[in-house]
Simulated scan of single mutants.
Amino acid sequence: MCGRMALTLPKEAMVELFAATPANNLPEVPNYNICPTNQVHGVTSEGGARRIRSMRWGLLPPWYKTPSAGPLLINARAETVAEKPAFREAIRARRCLVPADGFYEWSKDAEDNRLPWFVHRADGAPMVFGGLWQEWQGEGGGVATLAIVTLAAEGKMASVHQRQPLVLAPEDWPLWLGEAGKGAALLMKTPPEGTLDLYRVDREVNSNRASGPQLLEPLEG
C-alpha cells in the first residue's frame, strides 16, 4: 500500500516536469512526512491543459455527508478499482498523477516492532504514482480529493509489504491522464525489476508528527 510519503521537488521543477500550470494554493515543499488527509500535489489534464492542484489525500465519494462519514480511502486496489462504487467513475474519467520522492513502508521484526523503510526510484528520478480524483461537495464548497492506485508487490517490495503503489514512467503519463486515448488499464502493472530500491530509515518516522530531512537518511548499520 502507500500510507506515507515524502516530496522535496520544488514547485518550479514540478511545473517543468509535467508541463503543467500550478494552482496558487499548492502544499508547501519540502515535506518529509506526508500523511493521509494532508494536502498533496495532484496533476490533472482538464480541457486539454495540465494543472497541478492541491488535493486532499483520501478520496471522498459524493455520498459522504462529512469527510469522516465512511472509511478513509487513501488507496484503490487495481484489481477492483473499476468495480468499487467509490472509485469506478473516477478511474474512468478522472485520473491523476501524484509526484513524490518516494514512500515509506513498514516491516516487523521478531518482537513485532514496526521497522520503517523508504522506497524510491533506483535512478534517483522523482517517483510518480497513478491516482484518481473526485471533487467532493461539502458545506464549505468543493474539495478536490484523491486516492493512489495499488498493486500486488513484486521483487524487493514483496519482502517488506504485500502491496505497492502504481508507479508510472514519463512515457505513460499521457495515457494515464487520458491525453493519449483509451487503454490506461494496461498501465496497471508493477514497473520493471530494478526500477525501485529501498533502505531502512530511523523509527522516528513511525510518528506522523515527525518532520525534517533526517527522516530520509539511511539507517546506519
Rank of each mutant, 00 (worst) to 15 (best):
M1A: 08
G3Q: 10
A6T: 00
T8L: 11
L9T: 12
E12K: 10
E12V: 09
M14T: 10
T21E: 13
P22V: 05
A23Q: 15
A23T: 11
N24W: 08
N24F: 09
L26R: 01
L26M: 13
P27W: 00
E28P: 04
Y32Q: 01
N38I: 09
Q39G: 11
V40F: 13
H41Q: 07
G42P: 04
V43F: 05
T44P: 07
E46I: 10
G47Y: 04
A49N: 04
M55E: 12
M55H: 06
R56S: 03
P62M: 14
P62K: 14
K65H: 10
P67N: 11
A69S: 15
A69Y: 11
A69W: 09
P71E: 03
N75A: 13
R77I: 05
E79F: 03
A82F: 04
A82E: 14
E83D: 14
E83K: 04
P85Y: 05
P85V: 08
F87E: 05
E89A: 14
I91L: 10
R94Y: 04
V98M: 13
A100F: 02
D101M: 10
E105D: 06
K108N: 12
E111D: 15
D112E: 15
H120F: 08
D123G: 06
G124S: 06
M127P: 01
F129C: 12
G130R: 08
G130K: 02
G131E: 01
W133F: 02
G142K: 09
T145K: 04
L146C: 15
A147L: 04
I148Y: 11
I148E: 09
V149G: 07
A153D: 01
G155W: 00
V160W: 01
Q162E: 12
P165V: 09
P165N: 08
V167H: 02
L168K: 05
A169I: 03
P170Q: 05
P174T: 00
L177A: 04
E179R: 03
A180C: 03
G183T: 09
G183Y: 06
A185T: 02
L187H: 01
K189Y: 04
E193F: 04
L198Y: 10
Y199C: 08
R203F: 12
V205I: 07
V205T: 02
N206D: 08
S207I: 03
R209S: 11
G212I: 02
L216Q: 01
G221W: 08
